[in-house]
Design a protein around this nucleic acid. Structure first.
Lengths: 116, 116
DNA sequence: CCCCTACATTGACATTCTTCGATGAAAGGC
DNA sequence: GCCTTTCATCGAAGAATGTCAATGTAGGGG
């Protein structure tokens, strides 16, 4: 009976006040930290960047391994983390898996960090 | 001859194009990942939040240990990480160390993540 | 001069993360 | 039906991280 534990539904639009406006509750800090942790890796930042800058705004794994210079399992692992954190989506067509940036997902994080 | 290796001087105002505009260079990805890693912890997010929301925009270690519920060495450790990453400054007055948010440091990161 | 307070540093431990090779799974061509 | 391609998952090794107790340091107060 092992099922994936889904996170509670939350607003994509950053839900709350910016980090510096008021003391952030522990639960909200954990949620933001989880998303930031998914971004806090040079390889994953480059993967997001390559996917977003691709011609059709999407890329398959085979397009990504060579630019980042890592093995295919490692790239798949990073992509899974980004999907789980809500930054990428995966759509399988044939034998290929195409990854695409979730619109607004990065802006939601940015909005929480902005102080002005 | 052990000196602290300073990072090369860079614009506080986020230096470059947003992450999704063009493929980010490896070196820039490493730099952004380093700053994001400093933020990607619930305790450190709360420390920043508490410091920024404090009356005088500053707080000493003794003000911070109780709210986050961790030991004093652990809090000092997190604060050091945030100072090294450029998000906080430390100023010692008497026996107290006062931490203060670096203006614009969070916005610089937010600017790199914003897609619009 | 001694002690207390506030904080940093050290050393240690458990946990998590990054990476790879090896293997499994699914789709398509022969 | 078999083989190839594409990708995900597994298992393991090494590095990095978060945490604390213990110790070091520096500034005041008696």
């Amino acid at each position: 009976m092992s099922m994936i534990e889904l996170l509670p539904v939350r607003d994509l639009a950053a839900c709350c006040a910016p980090l510096t406006r008021d003391t952030i509750p522990a639960e909200q800090a954990a949620d933001l930290a989880h998303r930031l942790k998914a971004l806090a890796d040079p390889t994953r930042l480059r993967l997001i960047s390559i996917v977003a800058a691709s011609a059709d705004q999407e890329a398959c794994v085979c397009d990504l391994t060579e630019p980042v210079g890592l093995s295919q399992p490692t790239v798949s692992h990073h992509l899974k983390l980004l999907v789980d954190a809500g930054f990428l989506t995966r759509s399988k067509r044939g034998t290929w898996s195409y990854y695409r940036l979730v619109p607004g997902s990065l802006d939601a994080v940015a909005g929480l960090l902005t102080t002005t």
